[in-house]
């Protein structure tokens, strides 16, 4: 047995180390960006090879934003992190792996693409869902993941809260609204992609609260004859940020290429890749070109309504926070 296994092991080890690029980056990202980074990595590797003559290979890891941050803290050797929300990168920075001012190092809050939260409904919109108010009607089953583990779910929650607070003018009424909304949620998946699968494939629920890019992807994958996207008049501006993990990049000697990688997002090509993958580009020119691809939604920011991620996280999602209070009842 051992005699047969050993050459096999040796062969495998040899085979797996046969290829090596000049640089190797690990990008630890959140769930819905899989398709986005397939495109982006290919374009960046080509551009980098052209500019510097060096080859670069980018490896990807995807999962729930919060648990991915946890893995990096536990030692996953990420050169860059591209997560769903600033709070998760703050958590890594809090352990000293990333400089505290990371969000100032790149333009636009270090968020080169944005998204928002929209509704995905079944074809013909049988429950007539048009706006956030329709989600708390009795008999409407809403699918959204668990805000404790999923970045997208936190954006969903905050979008609903922000809408209600603007409409009713008080935090108490917003709390009541969000509590009513979660009464209509039959199942909380751990990640955004899990919720999409629940809604799209298992056929559970009447409306999925989803990242805009995730909703478009579901349309592309399953055909526009099964689902349609409803953009509410108001929603939240979701800014998924990116950062170089300083300790890892410095140790591996990949800082220059890691920084070039993130800066590539801010080029014309990078912005077009974002737009093609249904992320809202930030470059005004590209945004204008792709204007028709995105619904007109009045977007409010987390800073406006909640005073930033740290505050929102503490008030709403921490142990015993508002989400715990409303979901228990």
């Amino acid at each position: 047995m051992i005699r047969r296994v050993l050459p096999l092991v040796a062969g495998l080890l040899w085979a797996s180390s046969a290829f090596a690029a000049d640089y190797s980056l690990l990008n630890v990202s959140y769930d819905p960006t899989r398709e986005l980074y397939v495109d982006f990595n290919k374009a960046f590797a080509a551009a980098y090879q052209k500019d510097t003559g060096k080859s670069v290979e980018i490896k990807q890891s995807h999962g729930g934003s919060g648990s991915q941050a946890r893995s990096v803290i536990d030692g996953l050797q990420a050169d860059v992190v591209t997560l769903a929300l600033a709070y998760d990168i703050d958590a890594i920075a809090g352990k000293g792996l990333i400089a505290a001012d990371w969000q100032k190092r790149l333009a636009l809050n270090a968020s080169p693409y944005t998204s928002t939260i929209v509704f995905l409904v079944r074809k013909g919109n049988p429950k007539g869902i048009k706006d956030w108010d329709d989600l708390i009607k009795p008999g409407v089953a809403v699918i959204t993941p668990n805000p404790k583990t999923s970045g997208g779910a936190r954006w969903n929650y905050l979008a609903a809260w922000g809408y209600a607070q603007k409409k009713f003018g008080s935090a108490d009424k917003a709390k009541k609204f969000v509590a009513d909304l979660y009464q209509n949620v039959p199942v909380l998946d751990t990640g955004a992609r899990g919720s999409t699968v629940t809604f799209v494939e298992r056929g559970v629920g009447d409306v999925l609260l989803a990242w805009e890019n995730e909703a478009f992807l579901a349309l592309r994958e399953f055909g526009a004859d099964k689902f349609e996207i409803v953009a509410p008049p108001q929603s939240i501006l979701a800014e998924p940020p990116v950062a170089v993990v300083d300790t890892v990049a410095d140790k591996k000697g990949t800082r220059a290429v890691a920084e070039a990688y993130l800066k590539y997002w801010y080029t014309r090509e990078g912005q077009e890749i974002a737009a093609r993958n249904s992320y809202r580009p930030r470059d005004p020119e590209i945004a204008k070109e792709y204007e028709k691809s995105f619904a007109k939604v009045e977007l409010f920011t987390i800073d406006d309504v909640f005073g930033g991620w740290t505050k929102a996280q503490k008030e709403h999602f921490a142990e015993g926070g508002i989400f715990d209070q409303i979901y228990k009842n």
Binding site: S71, I73, D74, G75, L76, Q77, K95, K251
Partner: peptide, 17 residues
Amino acid sequence: QGYFGPWLQAHDVHILF
């Protein structure tokens, strides 16, 4: 953040992940 983590990191030994 674990018991042997800092030592392993200092010696560039990768066990986890």
